[in-house]
Amino acid sequence: MGHEKSMRLISLNVLKEGMVVGRTIWNEAGHPLLQKGVEVSDHIINRLKQLNIHYIYIEDKIAEGIEIEETISHQVRTRTVHNITKSFNAVKKAEPTQASYVLDQQSKVIGGIIEGLLDSILESEEILTVLTDAYLYDEYLYHHSFQVTLYSIAIAKEMGYAYEDLRLIGIGAMLHDVGKLLIPTEILLKPGRLTTEEYDLMKQHAKFGFDLLRNLHSISLLVAHCAFQHHERLDGSGYPRGLVDFEIHPFAKIIGVADVFDAVTSNRVYREKLLPSQGIAIIEAGSGTIYSEKVVEALKRSIIHYPNGTVLLLSDGRRGIVSKQNNSQPECPLVRIFEVENVLLDATYEINLADHPALRIDKIETEYVAYVE
């Protein structure tokens, strides 16, 4: 069954009729929107563009045998987002005075969700796979809350936190944006730039979240502080209170980084999403000034930088496709070399970038097309 496992990640810009889908794309209900093995037509290409999808896996013989490992199974992801949606919708529908009460009732569900995710993450030695284009969700907020929880737990696990702290960080991450349920939908989902007034109201979500959470019996006050502080930055440039380094709770520093990482690597209406390594680079640029250095380093160690099936151009003119991950050094995957100076090799071979410190990755080539057919 070799051909089931031959996935190359490409940009929608170079997707052509006749290519074959390498990995199923799912909708928010957990149903396949586009099945693996389907031949691509112009109609499919236009539909994917409408859906704001940027990358897709296709079958390709240079990717023979390359698989995508999901840290969290598709079933767990669908079930979790479904449960978050139910909990959040209950809060959203409640009268403003009742919202905290409803959230208190939902807290058992939320605690259960976190414990389930913790089990999945703690039993896996793998680093996190971060390619959200295989999933389409109507509600950005619910999917975002799920992703940020995943990244926060992975970072905190890497930093050596014990189970009870991981559980609290997970709940804090899950509820970090709960205040957005009190922001008018037209501002939340506005496709263009927000006006200054709208942005000021949007920034209130951190305070709204704190107010919703701080009096709950069933949820630690720490969780409320995660919601309050996830937009605070070390140098005092954050909001809503302009706190500085030592005033920000360590959990909020973790969730703050996870939040930005998910925002830049996810599909948003108003800008291109970035690949994981590009998202990491953006966060690294703020390491030690706006983000905690320890947290940034832990992020870099706990997630995949270059997903399997990604074509890379190396600094010595060789071109290869990421075939496996190097869990101890996520920034140095194993690469199957298939081309040298634009000439396809008769026989491919694999190198481990960790063994070649002088080699740099010059370019991620999601638009790679072979020079000779």
Results as ranks from 00 to 15, higher is better:
4 E>T: 11
17 E>K: 13
17 E>H: 10
22 G>E: 03
22 G>H: 00
23 R>S: 13
37 G>E: 04
40 V>W: 00
52 N>A: 03
55 Y>E: 00
57 Y>S: 02
59 E>H: 10
64 E>K: 05
73 S>T: 15
75 Q>C: 07
78 T>D: 01
80 T>F: 14
88 F>S: 07
91 V>I: 11
94 A>W: 02
100 S>A: 15
102 V>Y: 02
104 D>C: 02
104 D>N: 15
107 S>L: 04
108 K>C: 03
110 I>T: 02
126 E>C: 08
135 Y>A: 07
135 Y>K: 03
137 Y>A: 11
138 D>W: 11
144 H>G: 06
144 H>R: 02
146 F>Q: 07
147 Q>R: 14
148 V>F: 10
149 T>R: 02
157 K>I: 03
158 E>C: 03
159 M>D: 05
159 M>G: 00
160 G>D: 05
162 A>Y: 13
164 E>R: 14
164 E>N: 14
165 D>S: 14
169 I>M: 02
172 G>Y: 07
173 A>K: 01
180 K>G: 00
180 K>V: 01
183 I>V: 14
184 P>M: 00
187 I>M: 09
188 L>Q: 12
188 L>K: 10
189 L>P: 04
191 P>K: 14
195 T>E: 15
201 L>T: 03
203 K>W: 10
207 K>T: 06
214 R>W: 05
215 N>G: 15
221 L>Y: 11
222 L>K: 08
222 L>S: 04
226 C>M: 12
227 A>W: 09
228 F>I: 00
230 H>W: 12
230 H>R: 06
237 S>K: 07
239 Y>G: 09
248 I>W: 02
248 I>F: 04
250 P>T: 05
250 P>I: 06
253 K>V: 03
256 G>D: 01
257 V>N: 08
257 V>P: 01
262 D>W: 07
265 T>N: 01
269 V>W: 06
271 R>C: 10
273 K>V: 02
273 K>H: 05
274 L>N: 13
279 G>R: 04
282 I>Y: 10
293 E>M: 09
293 E>D: 15
296 V>N: 04
297 E>G: 01
303 I>L: 14
304 I>Q: 08
309 G>H: 03
313 L>R: 14
314 L>F: 02
322 V>I: 02
334 L>A: 12
337 I>R: 05
349 Y>V: 06
361 I>Y: 05
365 E>Q: 11
367 E>G: 07
370 A>F: 13
371 Y>R: 12
